[in-house]
Amino acid sequence: MNRRIFLGATAAGLAVTAWPAFIRDAFGDGAACDMDGKPSAAPPVAQVSAAFRRAQQAGKALLVLVIPADGNARWERGRAFGELLNFGADRDLAPLAGVEVVCATMADLKKIVPGAGAGEPLMVLVRTDKVPAPATPLDASLPAYKSGRSLDRASWEQQQKDEEKIAAQRIGALGDLLRRALGADERSVAARAAGVRARLVKQPPAGAHWASSSGCGTTIEGVEESGAVGCGMGHVPEKSRRFLYFFSVEQRG
């Protein structure tokens, strides 16, 4: 049974200080997830190290989805990656077939790859065939959704159309970024994309949980129910409702 965690704030910026004790605002504070999305006692830096080794053994590069330090930025970035993985076209997802994927903060990544660079780009591509491992930041500007929900019917319908357009632009920007960085091989695109969906959509990438929210409460997939706090109302664009959750969940019992 999923655990429903009701968060008393808008979907775009939930107040970290209001969270219950079993959720931590620093990803390393509680248990994270292993490569199958199951609870793991391994600290985040160990997950980065394990992902690096898997990539190296498979002769692949490591793609790091960067977890921002700021809590509100984590929500926004998790939704952007969720849009890509859940709604990206085959050509957007196929490049991911050739890399190992992990979610990590830049601080944890730098413990394994000191030359990972500065700032918090959307992603970092790490080659695993050289020592020290070369790293390339991958970044793009993503259009933002307007906050809040229109109240009258005509404005609401227009807002839905605008959000669909923005979602398509965000997915397109991330897909283009991946194709430019990883290559746009047009062979077996559908098959490679299907493999990516099986690996990263049915289960989350290492270092994250899949979660969903429609504006009142957040459900973290695969986590048993154990408590709740008050519900706040917030509007979430349709294609952002299933997203990568970058906060740890402390395991009890």
Rank of each mutant, 00 (worst) to 15 (best):
I67W: 00
P68T: 06
P68Q: 07
A69F: 07
A69K: 11
D70R: 13
D70T: 03
G71S: 14
G71E: 14
N72Q: 11
A73N: 10
R74M: 04
W75G: 12
R77W: 10
G78D: 02
R79G: 14
A80T: 09
A80N: 15
A80S: 15
G82C: 13
E83I: 01
E83F: 01
E83R: 15
E83V: 03
L84P: 02
L84C: 05
L84T: 00
L85W: 07
L85P: 03
L85A: 03
L85V: 13
G88V: 02
G88W: 07
A89T: 12
D90Q: 09
R91I: 09
R91V: 13
D92A: 06
D92W: 03
L93G: 01
L93V: 00
L93H: 00
A94R: 12
P95M: 04
P95Q: 07
P95D: 14
A97R: 08
G98P: 01
G98F: 04
V99G: 03
E100T: 13
V101N: 01
C103Q: 06
A104V: 04
T105A: 09
T105N: 01
T105W: 04
M106W: 05
M106P: 09
D108V: 02
D108Q: 11
K110G: 09
V113K: 02
V113H: 07
P114K: 09
G115A: 13
G115T: 08
G115C: 06
G115K: 09
A116Y: 07
G117E: 00
A118D: 14
A118R: 14
G119W: 04
L122I: 01
V124C: 00
L125K: 05
L125R: 02
V126I: 07
V126H: 04
T128I: 01
T128M: 00
V131R: 03
V131G: 01
V131P: 01
A133D: 02
A133C: 15
A133P: 07
A133F: 12
A133W: 05
A133K: 02
A135F: 08
A135T: 08
T136V: 13
P137E: 00
D139Y: 03
A140G: 01
L142N: 09
P143L: 08
P143T: 12
P143C: 10
P143Q: 07
Y145G: 04
Y145I: 05
S147F: 11
G148F: 05
G148R: 01
G148D: 06
R149D: 10
R149C: 11
R149Q: 14
R149G: 08
S150H: 14
S150K: 15
L151P: 05
L151C: 06
D152L: 12
D152E: 14
D152I: 12
R153W: 13
R153H: 10
R153I: 14
A154K: 15
A154Y: 10
W156E: 13
W156S: 13
E157A: 10
E157N: 13
Q158L: 13
Q158D: 14
K161G: 03
K161F: 06
K161M: 09
D162R: 11
E163M: 03
E163H: 10
E164D: 15
E164M: 08
E164I: 04
I166F: 00
A167W: 12
A168V: 06
A168G: 07
I171K: 09
A173F: 00
A173L: 02
G175M: 05
G175A: 06
G175V: 01
G175I: 01
D176N: 15
D176Q: 14
L177F: 11
L177V: 10
L177K: 06
L177E: 09
R179K: 15
R180H: 12
R180D: 12
A181F: 04
